[in-house]
């Protein structure tokens, strides 16, 4: 039985890695721009459609298509920023939330109009693998690895480049960054574009393990919120820990309790972390863990 437990936890970690991959762009945008992008899941949904059509028309390996979809979504993110986000970047939270809600309508119904309601799925490209008497799905394993690579690259970008320094400075305090000569609106533009490129990278992965349909975004945006809050706003490495925590919670709840009780459990966790974080107690609690992970550099 212990093998079953270990296998379940490992599977939860792999699925959680995919959650982290979906959420990392959201946490970056949230952390740097202080904008909650409710349309994050809708961007993912569009990325899944693009991935599906790249796969079905070009016959390209879905994981390779990350190299097409992500750059495409970088541009898409930049355009969205110019048209929609920039005008409200300095406005109230109300405005920010509802502009992104407006984007959801546009994306979802455009997808419905263009592609119809039938679900699509990239199938038959990858199967399962066995190791130590346990079975895993290749898609989730590679998805997890892509998440690790993406987070590592993002980490390098943020902590080893000039641009990263500026992004972090803007995140810390836009006013001071501006005084130091940082063009914060250029930083916002790049941050949003990178964030959307990251969710673009998740598209080909999710399109292989879930159905692509216009309403799929709602499931993933809620999961992404949970990952972002548990991992810490703008904390890209935190996402890689939070995703698997949710994955494990779901997997264990489904195995030992009831599949319907997984979400209530992680929502309680989510709520508790939000409150503890606000009162500072969470930081005390996790201080040692966090310093171990982020060394002396702190979060974004």
């Amino acid at each position: 039985m212990v093998e079953v437990l270990i296998q379940t936890i490992l599977r939860g970690i792999l699925t959680g890695g995919v959650y982290a991959l979906v959420a990392v762009g959201l946490t970056l945008i949230f952390g740097v721009m202080d904008v909650v992008n409710f349309a994050h899941g809708a961007y993912l949904m569009l990325a899944m459609y693009v991935s599906f059509y790249v796969w079905s028309f070009l016959g390209l390996d879905p994981f390779l298509s990350v190299l097409i979809v992500a750059p495409l979504f970088f541009l898409f993110g930049a355009v969205s920023y110019y048209l929609v986000i920039h005008p409200i970047i300095d406005r109230s939270m109300f405005a920010q939330i509802f502009v992104t809600v407006g984007l959801i309508w546009v994306f979802e119904h455009l997808a419905l109009f263009l592609f119809g309601p039938s679900p699509r799925r990239i199938t038959g490209e990858y199967g399962g693998i066995r190791a130590f008497g346990m079975a895993f799905e290749e898609v989730r394993l590679y998805g997890f690895l892509i998440a690790v690579v993406v987070v590592a690259l993002l980490f390098l970008l943020l902590y080893r480049t000039r641009l990263g320094l500026n992004i972090r400075a803007t995140s810390e305090s836009p006013e001071i960054a501006q005084l130091m000569g940082v063009d914060i609106y250029r930083i916002y533009l790049l941050t949003f574009a990178i964030g959307i490129a990251l969710v673009g990278a998740a598209g080909p992965v999710v399109a292989q393990l879930d159905s692509t349909e216009p309403t799929i975004w709602s499931y993933y945006v809620l999961i992404a919120f949970v990952v972002v809050v548990l991992g810490g706003l703008g904390n890209v490495t935190g996402a890689l820990i939070a995703g698997p925590i949710i994955g494990i919670t779901e997997a264990l709840a489904s195995l030992y309790l009831d599949p319907l009780l997984g979400p209530p459990i992680y929502y309680v966790l989510f709520f508790a972390v939000l409150v503890l974080r606000a009162t500072g107690q969470f930081e005390e609690l996790t201080h040692s863990v966090r310093t171990a992970f982020t060394a002396d550099k702190g979060g974004v």
């Binding site: 079953v4 296998q7 379940t8 599977r11 699925t15 995919v18 799905e137 999710v206 393990l209 879930d210 709602s218 499931y219 993933y220 994955g247 779901e250 997997a251 264990l252 709840a253 489904s254 195995l255 009831d258 599949p259 319907l260 979400p263």
Partner: peptide, 14 residues
């Protein structure tokens, strides 16, 4: 009994 929106049924399969 499981929620139709789920993205992972591996525990149910277990």
């Amino acid at each position: 009994e499981y929620e139709a929106d789920t993205s992972d049924l591996s525990s149910e399969i277990q």
